[in-house]
Amino acid sequence: MELKTKNYLEQLKEWPQSGKHILAQYTDEYVVAYQAYRPSIGKFAAENQYFGGDFSFSRMSWIKTNFLWMMYRSGWGTKVGQEITLALYLKRDYFEKILSSAHPSTNVHGMPKDEWDKQIAATNVRLQWDPDHDPHGAKQERKAIQLGLRKDFLEPFSGEGILNIVDISDFVSAQREFVQRNELHKLITPSEYCFPISEEQALNLNV
């Protein structure tokens, strides 16, 4: 599987400028999500096509479908412990189940605290909407999604929920040069489109 890419400025014209959107590269088979790790974890996953070694299945692990949000979070792969950027080709049905089980990380519905605490403790998929960012890290009006996985929803990282794991660190490094030189007309980013969600998912995602 090869990551599909497109000129950043061309994509910028196509993306919504505001609202909550799951920008992602996807097909009927998979949805691409990104994570950044230290070399011992990232290289193991890419070489073995599953997560293991120093990876902890006892902690919550966050995925991001939006490449530029991941670049903001990892400093374009320069932050300590986030040097290796992975593109995870998640099985489409696995990703759909994640969305259908998502629970906001903050009490957006104003529930009583004890009820909220009980629900958030029981959920295995956490949802956050954060400001998206441009290549230089400036906040955008559009909101980007990140999803925290644990327990039963993280177990598929052992292999069954992932079609492919690709180390795209070299691609990230090459594109970082254009950002640093402010040559955004040369910047190439993964092709991303608004992912369709069901009515049930929209309720879970607070869209």
Rank of each mutant, 00 (worst) to 15 (best):
S100L: 15
S101E: 07
A102C: 01
A102F: 00
A102R: 01
A102V: 00
A102G: 06
H103S: 15
H103R: 12
P104W: 09
P104F: 07
S105I: 06
S105R: 15
S105L: 09
N107F: 04
V108A: 06
V108C: 04
H109T: 08
G110N: 06
P112V: 05
E115K: 04
E115P: 05
W116I: 06
D117N: 13
K118G: 03
K118C: 03
K118E: 14
Q119T: 09
A121W: 10
A122F: 03
T123F: 01
T123V: 03
T123W: 00
N124S: 14
L127A: 03
L127G: 02
W129H: 07
D130M: 09
P131M: 02
D132I: 05
D132K: 12
H133Y: 03
D134N: 10
P135H: 04
G137E: 09
G137L: 11
G137N: 13
E141Q: 11
R142E: 02
K143H: 06
I145Q: 15
Q146W: 09
L147E: 09
L147Y: 08
G148K: 08
L149Q: 01
L149M: 04
L149F: 00
R150W: 01
R150K: 13
D152H: 08
D152P: 13
F153C: 00
F153I: 01
L154G: 00
P156L: 01
F157C: 13
F157D: 06
F157V: 09
